[in-house]
Each structure stands twice: as C-alpha cells, then as structure tokens.
Amino acid sequence: MTEEEIKKTVFQLLQRIAPETDPSRLMPEENIREALNIDSFDALQFIVAISEKLNVEIPEEDYGKTISLKSLLAYLDKKVNG
C-alpha cells in the first residue's frame, strides 16, 4: 500500500467521524483531534476503524504516535510496509 493510499484511507475515516470537516486541509504538524474536534470516544473509534481497514495492530502505548497527520502517516506506513 502506497503512502498516498494510506493517506486517502485516513482522510476517509476521519471524515466519517467528523463529517462537516475537510481532513485534507489538516496541517502536517497539527493535532488532529483538536483541529477536527474529535472526542475521546471518537478517537478510539478512529483507532478501531484504521486498525481494521489497514489490518494493523495499534497498541495503546502507541497512541502518542497518532496525534498529528505527519506522525500518524509515518507510523502507519511503518506498520503496513515495514
């Protein structure tokens, strides 16, 4: 899976959770949850959805690596493509 495909999946899932937002306008270093106004419950739903969609295991201690778009995409790329 290319980096671009991962990005597209992330955007789709974020938009499902925050339908009135445009995740593609997120800045790379921005805090995703703050920018899109995502609460703790929806944040967990996002982690569930992305693990299922990309078939990766995201342990709780790695949640810190999923805060900004830049770190999340790097983390997922590593998980998916090794």
């Binding site: 703790s40 419950f41 967990l44 982690i47 569930v48 693990s51 295991e57 995201i58 342990p59 709780e60």
Partner: peptide, 11 residues
C-alpha cells in the same frame, strides 16, 4: 488494555 484487541479496549 494491553491484553485486549482494540475493539474491546476501555476508556
């Protein structure tokens, strides 16, 4: 939560 799949994790 360490022992749980993501779907069963607690908040």
């Amino acid at each position: 939560n360490k022992e749980r799949p993501v779907q069963k994790r607690l908040l």
